[in-house]
Nucleic acid binder design. Sequence first.
DNA 1: GTGGGTGCAAATACTTTGCAACCGA
DNA 2: TCGGTTGCAAAGTATTTGCACCCAC
Lengths: 127, 127
Amino acid sequence: MPALKHSRQRESIKNFLTSRYDHPTADTIYTNVRQEFPNISLGTVYRNLALLTDLGEIIKITTDGPDRFDGHVEPHSHFICRKCHAVLDIKMKSEDFIDKEAQKCCSGVIEGHVTQYFGVCSECIKD
Amino acid sequence: MPALKHSRQRESIKNFLTSRYDHPTADTIYTNVRQEFPNISLGTVYRNLALLTDLGEIIKITTDGPDRFDGHVEPHSHFICRKCHAVLDIKMKSEDFIDKEAQKCCSGVIEGHVTQYFGVCSECIKD
DNA sequence: GTGGGTGCAAATACTTTGCAACCGA
DNA sequence: TCGGTTGCAAAGTATTTGCACCCAC
């Protein structure tokens, strides 16, 4: 793995993500970071999101539709709406217990606290 | 929603999925169903997978890489390997408890038993 | 100066869709 | 016959990548 060098673009992407509590797409991030770096390209955004994900500084959330990113890596799970694809945080008291239960039934190593629950959010349930 | 009409292609796709306990991609399904229907197109496979998913007859699993499909809709969760993208079944005794816990912390309606856990599978952990 | 980072554009991967022909009820 | 289904190809969406130039160390 090559030596990491500082980049103001990457810093801006990271800052943007930690400032938000929703789960923006690469495109949303691109649009916002462009206010600070008008010439930044979408490719650079993707490259840095992949890099930050590898470093464990952000979380990549794969759902239907485009990937979402989360700048908050403290233990929590995600609820994903099947209809509108909203991603909401879930913070359970029993999360640690759950991870251990899953671990018991699985031959791999569970990455705690990145569990995804699916369903229909309270907005979409009205239809 | 239009009236459903029988199709031998759809039946074959469904049968293929219920015969397997791994979680094939649309392309794998395409390749295999083609042995019975040499002229079937990938578009037809995708259309039927979407339809069967809507009917609740199969489960669509979204991960990194292409979507995976599961012909077994009995309650169970999935473990997804971050490295090789393998999808493995997890059957926990406490699954019902977990769904209820998640439900408590979430304003939407959790679709029980489609929970996804992430991690590194026992094959990939060797590296 | 060296090597990682960037912008741009082209390429890739996966999935969806328009349309005319086809098939099941 | 009627309308859902199919095969084909083109289009669409999301993401990755090659390359020349730029910037951090």
